[in-house]
Design a binder for these strands. Structure first.
Lengths: 207, 207
DNA sequence: ATGCGAATTGACCAAGTGGTCAAATGCTTT
DNA sequence: AAAGCATTTGACCACTTGGTCAATTCGCAT
């Protein structure tokens, strides 16, 4: 199904440059707001040359999205059913936070897509994403039933981890506009806050 | 500075219809993605007629944004310094959640604007919004200092309340794609989850 | 009913957009 | 060095888009 032809060195380099430039532009402008000229310029190519490597604007976008979704789910897959529940969930939150920190453009690309109704990724949400989330929620529920976590709704717990961590990528401008931080120092405080938030929420009380 | 001419009945009706239609379209498509034709059609007017009431696409958008920001900050302003700290913060969270529930289009409009770098609202963020947030954070800190709240970073607490509540409006498609809820029933569960989350986080422990 | 400003619109325009294509240039292999 | 494929691009096209404008229609006060 994929390219049978082996990619040349130039092809590899240019396709990578295009995808990186497209990520930059799409993550800020959204699909409709981005233009091929912007992407081509950012990639250091002419527009027809860009279209020599990708069939259409849509093709670039969907390739970006599908490549990203997989990476995005990795932290969830890394949950260890045999680990300590609180450690595992805090570690998951940390990994998500780390991704928002390392890959804010990717986070914003998804945010744009979802806010605008997920027209090109809805099937992935109701399919693999839902399956993985449901599975993880079930695991969390077993931990709760075993009194190893304070009782809480597992699905909404997962949503809240997404919301709080991605906030620092997606709403970066707002956060910086309010905190006026020096560099990225505020992100360390944010992570400490989130560790406290979830530790207090998840730690069961003896009774 | 505002219109000196008294608005006619027709003007009032049409301006309202336009702003409502524009909210619908902008909140889904973002500024660049929305077209005047879409807005005009949604408002039941022709494009030239729409431009008879507003000078430009930009004018519609900025009027929407500035009107909305004020409403958006009301819940924060309603915090009572003399109330019970935990009750006040939970009540604030509930009001924010209520707004996400009642006005998801408004929430998504802001989300679009912020994710895309807040090009047309940045001054409002570093100005009035920052001032109000800083003031509220200081109030929360006094509550913490008085041992009436468990110690926590006030700014990041506010951010987390924004993130978790707005998530249900901004990422509605994703939430529904995973939960496949019957109507809006899941939002009651979400609110209960959030009450638990913040009660556990904010309740001070005796020691 | 009629006059007059308010409201509406069809036709139009310039700029921007995604995409095409034939021709030119570059790179490798023999 | 020459063939042959990969790469690049200037010119172009059809369509969309924000916005204009003159002409028309509407609604209301007299």
């Amino acid at each position: 199904m994929t390219e049978t032809r082996p990619q040349t060195r130039i092809q590899k380099k240019n396709r990578e440059a295009i995808l990186d430039a497209a990520l930059e532009v799409f993550s800020i402008e959204g699909f409709r707001g981005a233009t091929l000229d912007q992407i081509a310029t950012a990639a250091g190519l002419s527009k027809p040359n860009l279209l020599y490597y990708f069939a259409s604007k849509e093709a670039i976008y969907t390739e970006l999205l599908s490549k990203l979704l997989d990476t995005w789910l990795d932290p969830l897959r890394a949950l260890d059913p045999n680990g300590d529940p609180i450690n595992e969930l805090i570690a998951y939150m940390r990994r998500k936070f780390e991704m928002s920190r390392e890959f804010p453009r990717e986070s914003r690309l998804f945010a744009n897509e979802i806010v605008q109704g997920a027209p090109r990724i809805f099937d992935e949400i109701t399919g693999p994403l839902k399956a993985l989330v449901d599975e993880t929620a079930a695991l969390i529920q077993t931990w709760i039933d075993a009194n190893r976590l304070a009782p809480i709704d597992p699905h909404h717990l997962i949503f809240s981890i997404w919301a709080t961590t991605q906030h620092y990528a997606d709403f970066d401008v707002q956060v910086r506009g309010i905190l006026i931080p020096d560099g990225d120092s505020h992100l360390d405080a944010a992570e400490a806050f989130l560790v406290t938030l979830y530790t207090r929420t998840l730690t069961p009380v003896a009774h």
